[in-house]
Design a protein around this nucleic acid. Structure first.
Length: 850
RNA sequence: GCGGACGUGGCGGAACGGUAGACGCAGCGGACUUAAAAUCCGCGUCUUUCGGGAGUGUGGGUUCGAUUCCCACCGUCCGCACCA
């Protein structure tokens, strides 16, 4: 007998789809469009299970929407600039471009067998000059629109390699190659002025109702809008020009608890004091750390008393010392604060370390407990008792006290209420080769000059050397030498390239017209934008999504997108990771040696290698090369077929949670698909059958209803559970008329077409479906087949289940109550007591309260 | 350190505030087979004196009723601006 052979059918149907050209997206104003997009991959050279999960989910949505009658756009491309290509160049001596394009070819070849409904004619890579040239045009338009600026910013500097390091390249405070202690250094850089849009980016989050709430919360917190007081201390003993020290605080209500003022090591006042060797040494010490906020926040708090004093604005006789402290960020507020140790943990730690006073400003209502080693920081909405108030005091919330403090200070002429954001401008300069060149020229006479638009793209040279550390574009003998577009004199090209986040901030728009002359084609963008469903990892919840939202607004402002596309992603779904158990054996030095899953044998003796060495089975973690707990999709597809891989990554776990890859799970998925195929094969030639068709037909319609709802709700694991039930029902209905079984199998084929499309086509063809199931409409549910005549209600007595009764659906409360009280099991549970209340939830439950 | 999420049988998970454990895996029992594989059917939280009792990370609270809502704690994961 024939059997399910994925190798044969998967290739067959992929060819059939290609011949029919059914996944090519065509602009058709007469039809409603639907744009499905998965976050495009970095071309590492191998696809991994995370990709399979991401693209299978996107394909699920794309194929489902197509069946529902939408004109679907489902493109794919490559996020192709970035550090790994330069690392490969250093390690293997290949050019980053050649390495990247080889990887793209390899990955495309691994992706195609998955049978995704992608319009490959729209494919591009961000490292194509055709793409990055348009990105340069966008950059110049943004420059003209005032959205770009140049200013100084801090970078990780490797003093041995004399080069800028990415945060990733800083390991335990040291450069990953040189091992030198990394220091912070200032460099003039290009920035996008994202903070100009902070308020709009924040307010518009309210409208993103199809985004996960957690992502919206994270974005709100990242933007971090806060109202506070900005005022100036008068200084004593400060150098000329620093008679006043501007500080910003979100807690002006704690001003009477101030015990010191502190400035960032990069603050102009600190720099002005650096002629003092002690200060200079301290600032140098503060710089011995990377730029990441995590590193700065977790570093031990250190400070230096400058000897300068400031007078308290509410009491001219009260003086506070000015410290330089390593935990003050120059980027936030004014780079200077006053410390109130009683109500801020960092200030308290600092005060305890350096013996500064701690004065409680407020206490819990009615409590006389004073701050010890833990700062008292209740929610601002909680009423507290002010014992050192700025004004009147008494019991009030922090919120109210802050507003009162701002009003009081404004009335007294001490500063003013201001709004600040945690969000910083987006620094896009990178001192690297493998990125989009910034299309400007530095001319000794004219200054910073734009490259002429007709000269775009400014192409990367393809003959660079990675022998020396640092930016190869700077080392290139000729590339940066050019003439000034304005005066014609000799000039130097900008050698900074753009952050790769820029590349991924507008690719969704380029997909709507991938070969347009300009960055976009407004007619195409107008039809296809916005992305209706965006799918990707939660690790992009903040940066990529926020930058994309900013870029879409910038493209509206520069005329590259219609006004309606300023918020580019209508719906967002964040999927979980694919994990696997980890396996290790004991190494000679006692440290674990990681083993690949394919090396490990599981049997009665436990887990071991082929030679009998026992294997330690560790917890399931994200698949990673370093722990070797990876399963190669290519191997799975070769062994089981693409449909099994697709079915597995959709089943079991909810899509937004991690899914654990297990060999037995893959085996089970494969078995199930074989069972479906066998049922179809048997039914294809079956005749007769005189049994009752109704249970089967009811099961089919229930499945249509439930699977549809589950797909709409991104509950793919539940949709799959419903498919298992329908399969069991068909298997059980051996005696039903053959044509009814074929109907049920056609329904099944339609329902699984988005999940396992190749199998679905084969089943569809076997049981008399017309044409391709990929082109067939979504099945329609018959409400008459869903109605139930009777319902079984659980009966609780005092909240504990004691009985159940069966009543006609829709029975009213009085009828149910009477029946329940007569029930012998209920009477036994009542034990002669009189019911106080009977709660009847129609068609759901009864609770008798005694 | 700061911000965000998650926690249910041996395992992955299901459950508009309404029968906790759908569906799947592993396991056990049975059918078919000379036998095995494949396939099909059934059982399945723990405990019990067989009446019942306990049970959704831990401890409290709200409710006729809590896995679900509220508070505190513990653990795990994600992000922190130059990894993508």
């Amino acid at each position: 007998m024939s059997r399910y052979d994925p190798r044969v059918i998967e290739q067959k149907w992929q060819l059939a789809w290609e011949d029919a050209g059914i996944f090519k997206a065509r602009h058709d104003p007469a039809r409603p469009k639907y744009y499905v997009l998965e976050m495009f991959p970095y071309p590492s050279g191998r696809i991994h299970m995370g990709h399979v999960r991401n693209y299978t989910m996107g394909d699920m949505v794309a194929r489902y929407r197509k069946a529902c009658g939408y004109n679907v756009l489902h493109p794919m491309g490559w996020d192709a600039f970035g550090l790994p290509a330069e690392n490969a160049a250093m390690e293997k001596g290949v050019q980053p471009g050649a390495w990247t394009y080889q990887n793209i070819d390899a990955m495309r070849a691994q992706m195609k067998p998955l049978g995704l409904s992608i319009d490959w004619s729209r494919e591009f890579a961000t490292c194509d000059p055709e793409y990055y040239g348009r990105q340069q045009a966008l950059f110049l338009d943004m420059l003209d629109a005032g959205l770009v600026t140049r200013k100084s910013a801090q970078v990780n500097w490797d003093p041995v390699d004399m080069t800028v390091l990415a945060n990733e390249q800083v390991v335990d405070g040291r450069g990953w190659r040189s091992g030198a202690v990394v220091e912070r250094r200032e460099l003039v850089q290009w920035f996008f002025r994202i903070t100009d849009m902070a308020d709009d980016l924040l307010a518009a989050i309210d409208g993103l109702d199809a985004w996960p709430e957690k992502v919206r919360t994270m974005q709100r917190n990242w933007i971090g809008k806060s109202r506070g007081l900005q005022f100036a201390f008068e200084t004593k003993g400060a150098p000329e020009g620093f008679e006043r020290l501007e500080v910003f605080t979100t807690r002006p209500d704690t001003l009477m608890g101030a015990s010191f003022a502190a400035i960032a090591p990069e603050h102009p006042l600190a720099k002005a004091l650096a002629s003092d060797p002690k200060v200079a040494a301290f600032i140098a010490e503060c710089r011995q750390s990377g730029t990441s906020e995590e590193e700065i926040e977790t570093a031990p708090k250190i400070g230096l008393d400058t000897g300068i004093r400031v007078t308290h604005p509410f009491d001219p006789t009260w003086e506070l010392p000015v410290w330089i402290a390593n935990f003050i960020l120059m980027d936030y507020g004014t780079g200077a604060i006053f410390g109130c140790p009683a109500h801020d943990q960092r200030d308290l730690d600092f005060a305890r370390k350096y013996g500064l006073p701690v004065e409680d400003v407020f206490t819990a209502k009615g409590s006389d407990v004073r701050v010890g080693t833990e700062a008292f920081v209740p929610p601002k909405t909680e009423p507290v008792e002010y014992v050192r108030p700025l004004g009147e005091g008494g019991v009030m919330t922090g919120e109210a006290a802050v507003e009162a403090a701002i009003d009081l200070c404004e009335a007294k002429g001490i500063g003013s209420g201001v709004v600040r954001y945690r969000l910083r401008d987006w620094g896009v300069s990178r001192q690297r080769y493998w990125g989009c060149p910034i299309p400007v020229i530095h001319c000794p006479t004219c200054g910073v000059v734009q490259e002429k638009r007709e000269n775009l793209p400014v192409r990367l040279p393809d003959d660079v050397s990675f022998e020396k550390p640092g930016n190869p574009l700077e080392h290139h003998p000729t590339w940066s030498k050019t003439t000034c577009p304005t005066c014609g004199g000799p000039a130097r090209r900008e050698t900074d390239t753009m952050d790769t986040f820029v590349d991924s901030s507008w690719y969704y728009a380029r997909f709507t017209a991938p070969h347009a002359e300009g960055p976009t084609d407004l007619a195409e963008a107008g039809y296809w934008m916005n992305v209706d469903q965006y799918i990707g990892g939660v690790e992009h919840a903040i940066l990529h999504l926020l930058y994309s939202r900013f870029f879409a607004r910038a493209m509206v402002k520069t005329g590259h997108l219609p006004a309606s596309a300023g918020e580019p992603f209508n719906a967002l779904f964040t999927q979980g990771m694919v994990t696997h158990e980890t396996y290790s054996t004991a190494g000679a030095d006692g440290r674990p040696v990681w083993r690949e899953p394919s090396e490990v044998i599981h049997d009665e003796a436990g887990a071991h290698l082929a030679d009998g060495t026992p294997v330690e089975v560790g917890p399931s973690t994200k698949m990673s090369k370093s722990k070797k707990n990876v399963v190669d999709p290519a191997d799975i597809i070769a062994h089981y077929g693409a449909d099994t891989a697709r079915w597995f990554v959709l089943s079991d776990s909810p899509p937004d949670r991690d899914v654990e890859w297990t060999a037995s799970g893959a085996e089970a998925a494969s078995k199930h698909l074989g069972r479906v195929w066998r049922l179809a094969h048997e039914a294809s030639t079956a005749a007769g059958g005189d049994g009752d068709a109704e249970p089967l037909l009811r099961a089919a319609h229930r499945a249509i209803r439930d699977v549809t709802a589950d797909i709409e709700g991104f509950a793919f694991n539940k949709a799959i559970a419903r498919i298992y039930e329908l399969t069991a029902a068909i298997s059980r209905a051996e005696s039903a008329p053959a044509e009814d079984r074929r109907f049920a199998l056609r329904t099944l084929a339609q329902l699984v077409a988005p999940m396992t499309p190749h199998l679905a086509e084969d089943v569809w063809a076997l049981v008399g479906g017309e044409g391709l199931v990929a082109a067939a409409p979504w099945p329609v549910v018959d409400p008459a087949m869903l109605a139930e005549a009777a319902v079984t209600l659980p009966v609780q007595v005092n909240g504990k289940r004691r009985a159940e009764i069966t009543v006609p659906a829709g029975s009213d409360a009085a009828t149910v109550e009477a029946l329940v009280l007569q029930d012998p099991a209920v009477q036994r549970a009542l034990d002669g007591k009189t019911p106080r209340r009977v709660i009847v939830v129609p068609d759901r439950i009864v609770n008798v309260v005694v």
